[in-house]
Design a protein around this nucleic acid. Sequence first.
DNA 1: CCAAAAGTGTTTTAAATACACCCATGC
DNA 2: GCATGGGTGTATTTAAAACACTTTTGG
Lengths: 172, 172
Amino acid sequence: MGELLDDAARRELSASTGLDRAYLEQLFTFGDPSRDPHAHVVSVAYLALIADPSRVNAPRGKYLGGKWYEVSRLAPLAYDHSLMAEYALRRLKSKLEYSNIAYALLPREFTFAQLEELYAKILGRPIDRRNFRRRIAAMNLLRKQPSSRRGAHRPAALYSFAQHGLQLVEML
Amino acid sequence: MGELLDDAARRELSASTGLDRAYLEQLFTFGDPSRDPHAHVVSVAYLALIADPSRVNAPRGKYLGGKWYEVSRLAPLAYDHSLMAEYALRRLKSKLEYSNIAYALLPREFTFAQLEELYAKILGRPIDRRNFRRRIAAMNLLRKQPSSRRGAHRPAALYSFAQHGLQLVEML
DNA sequence: CCAAAAGTGTTTTAAATACACCCATGC
DNA sequence: GCATGGGTGTATTTAAAACACTTTTGG
């Protein structure tokens, strides 16, 4: 009582995972009286995105047994939570196409290959690297970083999102 | 308690307007504690669409003074209801582009000019008639009716939506 | 020099846009 | 016959899609 929905979501996320500052977005409100056999519970579901799962606290208490899954092979969930996950994935897929939302799923600096892999995984389909680079460039959301990532192979240019926080791309 | 959110929305709509069978869609849940100075109220807002405002009961009781406005010249509203209306309009605009949602705003049979006028009003920008016809035809949502509308001028072909109920258009 | 990942252009196809005149009817 | 709204086509521009080779580095 007396709390913003967004704040409550953030508080819950923090309590369950220890995460602060994750991207949060209201998803949908689920209120089917039969969704929980014990009581009529109305849940305002939120979508959270994080770049680095290693910063999530190990599940304990009522979250014990929580695990990470590839989004393409999500385990069956209790209650109507699979439906929620489906809504969340759909929302994320569509936002990828017209926003910089990927910023919330990547480190501050990243390579084009990382970005491409992220899109391919979430959208569930292969992506043509050249067309993808062109399309992303046209959205004008990225800034090239001076440094580059060095490793076993040819160095990769590093990019970052120009804006931190959601930025929608106009498409008239 | 014990009621689906959609059913509750339908019940409220019916109580306030006498309407049954309107298109309904959950919009967003507003829960800012300061949105109502008297108490912390969480409202699950719905969007309803109707084709014919003349079937709406005259406002009475707590709805007394309710009026119709052009969407482009919406009056200021109490509480955060202007924000709700803004969300609703945004949702409607985007659904016009990739669904048959206009079926809920038109009579069963209608002319292309009516459809075009509807789009122009909601989107708030002029529409090129020829390009619009092509675009709508490509979505393949309409069926041409055998009859036509006769009146003061050249008769207009009548169309209806092939499907009653929301139908999303694939765009990969 | 080899393996591995990064980077890059062109052609084709489809969709969006811009644009103006003729048609059918009632009065 | 004229006013009114209904109906139609083409050329241009822009975006999407398909497609394969060269480059750079570490080992």
